[in-house]
Design a protein around this nucleic acid. Sequence first.
DNA 1: CGGCTGATTGAATCAGATCAACTGCTGTGG
DNA 2: CCACAGCAGTTGATCTGATTCAATCAGCCG
Lengths: 227, 227
Amino acid sequence: MDLIEAANIVTLFHGLPRAQLEALASIAVLKRAPRGQEIFQHGDPADGFYAVAQGKVKVFRANPLGKEQILHVFGPGESFGEIAVFERGEFPAGAQTLADSILLFFPRKAFSEAIRKDPELAMNMMALLATRLRQLVRKVEEIGLKEVPGRLAAYLLALGQEQGGADIRLDIPKGQIALSLGTIQETLSRTLKRFAERGLIRMKGRDVALLDLDWLERLAQGERFED
Amino acid sequence: MDLIEAANIVTLFHGLPRAQLEALASIAVLKRAPRGQEIFQHGDPADGFYAVAQGKVKVFRANPLGKEQILHVFGPGESFGEIAVFERGEFPAGAQTLADSILLFFPRKAFSEAIRKDPELAMNMMALLATRLRQLVRKVEEIGLKEVPGRLAAYLLALGQEQGGADIRLDIPKGQIALSLGTIQETLSRTLKRFAERGLIRMKGRDVALLDLDWLERLAQGERFED
DNA sequence: CGGCTGATTGAATCAGATCAACTGCTGTGG
DNA sequence: CCACAGCAGTTGATCTGATTCAATCAGCCG
């Protein structure tokens, strides 16, 4: 995979003319990172942002006691750490790969110039930041307002959308899903089991079949899960 | 208060030349809203964003059961609802005044053009979105990772920064503070009492004196509150 | 065949929510 | 100026969802 090819799949760059794409590719640095590799830590000096060409990266915060809250898991085409471009300073969260990955790194200064010169790119960036903002708003809502069954239902339905069907495959370990939902592995395990017992889903290893979409939908809306 | 004067205090517009400021003021609509007024609801069609010239506005999400999570409280100079500029669609949260307020409304279309034409304004907007993102990341961390005492300590310390001293005055009702911390009034009341009993703070009505900054700091870092 | 990581299950515990009653303050109108 | 309505805040008793601690199990790879 070469730089141009990699840059091409970054959604942030969609709709840009070829020349501009090449210019961006020329400032990018290709990085390979095996599964489990740390990209940056919370508090590291932030002097650029990343895009995922291949693989999976989680962005998270952790507290001193070791508990962790995943903010988002990014896949191919998505970028993360954009805050670093506009605010000098430190990354507000850490990032680590969940699979062998290929990343593009865009140094702050060079990218900042590119964006100042190209209004189209700037608009794309603002749209991206707005989307990210919306995601986080949803996350705050989920964690602050819904109980675990509601969050799980929302997660499963989102996966269904993404994978286009009611038969889905969990793409990351359950423990990581739990951290993303603001809970822990044990609780997730129990909740999945309850879902299965009530006929909401059928589960076998990492494969899940969504059986009662209607009920899941209601749970995701915030309705209580009464057995 | 006239439009220009109002637009001048919006931090998003800081550093812009006078002419540009006037152009922006010319597309703005001045709105007065008494305390308790709803600005927009979650799900309303979003065709512009707002800035606070005077007063206080809370932005929040609520679930069907009536529970509410405040995302942020905005004061003079701050703007909210910017997502509406870049993503057509619906507001992802609701907004309501917490005090008699004067607001500026910027219609999506006109502002969108302004931003496309003025790279300086675009950079300001990106910086603003990045800041907002950082705030939300912190919020997710607080709610997902810290217990109520930790969140409260962080809130009090932030107020201390803001008001420049260890003697602070709660600027919104305690019930609203609770909703912002992802808890409820009763729990907040009890936690404040515990803080006072341990000598962390002294409280009289809405006035709070921060006595043990060190301990508060440690709590805000995520350390447990053992009595 | 161990050995490791991921996952499940059970029992005990706890922080915080809920329900309910009560206090105190403030502004309004007789 | 007092009485009363109404909201904000406090406090107590109880309940519960979720975490914690601990043990066990399943699957996979070298």
